[in-house]
Amino acid sequence: MGMLDKKYHDSNIIIVSLEKALNWARKNSLWYEQFGLACCAIEMMATAASRYDFDRFGIIPRSSPRQADVMIVAGTVTMKMASRIKRLYEQMSEPRYVISMGSCSNCGGPYWEHGYHVLKGVDKVIPVDVYVPGCPPRPEALLEGFLKLQEIITGESVIKKKDEELEAVKAEIIDSNKNED
């Protein structure tokens, strides 16, 4: 390639933008909040067990929301549980993500019409990043969900977000000035 190639050949140095390095690190250490609500939790456990092995993606279960990056809502969200889910989500530190696993937490599933006790989709309470369909989804489907989440994280940018916020604030100020005139 040239001079750079030779220069860094022996000392194991990689040059990459900070943002990419951060995102790479984040997406490969997704710690999830163990959150089994119903039969989907069995599939989630199977995904974490040796055959499908979440750990090869750096995905490991945490028992505290404060240590978790992502919450898998695995199962039927009852009205009684919904407020607990909301609290757990609020206890997670940012950046935080939510994977809604299975039909029940996506939209109410088999309870959507006559289930008086079921919340019709966990997205009525907390924001969801990835929806995994299925009843329950197979471990491959949940893994696919995590790969989608990794895609989302790869595309994220700390600086861009700041810029966007700044632009929004600027636009607001300009608008308010116009109104005053």
Binding site: S83, L119, K120
Partner: peptide
């Protein structure tokens, strides 16, 4: 039985 529309501010229906 008639289902309540909201439970603690959360919609119980669609």
């Amino acid at each position: 039985y008639v289902q309540q529309e909201f439970y603690q501010g959360m919609p119980t229906g669609e």
